[in-house]
């Protein structure tokens, strides 16, 4: 009578099972190689140390730098950057815009290429905006004295100019009260008691650039009080 050894029986089966297992797992894919191509590129403007990546706005008075940022990061050294406006204006991951630039000196397209011919591009528009500026034409002037009562309507006027905007928004600050006066450049307001007062005006253009009229100190003398 033939007796099978229990351990030998298991050992005989194991190579068969291992062979099938290995055969089934032969189609496991290789580990993917790391990606070396840029998926997208963004441009931001830097002027006087301030970076602007949303509105891409620069002031014409100062030179500015455009910087390209590729994603994923760390590939800049392997890529070629070309800045265009109709024709090629420059290359490199940064582009310098001079002060008071002409329109054709400002790129509006960046093309990034790698060594294998892959490329990504970004279209953008740089806004060149001058902030509004107050003129010296405002009333009351520094140190003026106004005569009247608390109900007298005193005139306040100011003027600002802007190279790009026809209408500007103003906020008048009279002592501690803010008045949203919109595009008005002259108002009359009462309620000023006898004493020292301050008024200043903030102007804002459509691009959000602002200028502030320095605080003007003026005096109100109550004519009724003076009579007493």
């Amino acid at each position: 009578m033939w007796h099978r050894h229990p351990v030998l029986a298991r050992v005989r089966f194991l190579p068969v099972a291992a062979a099938f297992l290995l055969a089934a797992c032969l189609d496991i894919p290789d580990t993917p190689e790391p990606q070396n191509t840029a998926s997208y590129v963004t441009v931001y403007a830097v002027q006087k140390g301030n970076a602007d990546s949303t509105s891409l706005k620069i002031h014409p008075e100062d030179p500015a730098t455009l910087k390209a940022e590729v994603h994923p990061k760390g590939l800049e050294s392997e890529l070629n950057f070309s800045w265009y406006r109709d024709s090629l204006l420059g290359s490199g991951s940064t582009f310098k815009i001079p002060a008071y630039p002409e329109e054709d000196e400002i790129p509006n397209r960046l093309v990034v290429k790698d060594g294998e011919g892959n490329s990504v591009s970004s279209d953008f528009e740089i806004t060149v905006n001058s902030p509004p500026t107050f003129t010296e034409d405002f009333f009351p002037a520094q140190g003026d004295t106004l005569y009247g009562t608390a109900r007298t309507s005193f005139t306040f006027s100011w003027k600002a100019y802007d190279n790009e905007d026809a209408s500007l928004d103003y906020i008048l600050e009279l002592d501690t009260t803010h008045y949203y006066v919109g595009t008005l450049e002259k108002i009359q307001q009462s309620g000023l008691l006898s004493g020292t007062h301050l008024f200043l005006v903030i102007v804002r253009d459509s691009e959000g650039d602002t200028d502030t009229l320095p605080p003007v100190k003026f005096y109100v003398v109550d004519t009724l009080e003076a009579k007493k």
């Binding site: 109900r151 009260t177 803010h178 008045y179 919109g182 002259k186 108002i187 009359q188 009462s190 309620g191």
Partner: peptide
């Protein structure tokens, strides 16, 4: 309802010179 122009009981406003109203 605060900070509007002209203030209540303002005197001496001239329609010929323009009366300005402003609010927020």
């Amino acid at each position: 309802t605060q900070g509007f122009i002209p203030a209540i009981r303002s005197q001496g406003l001239s329609p010929e010179e323009g009366i300005t109203f402003a609010w927020h």
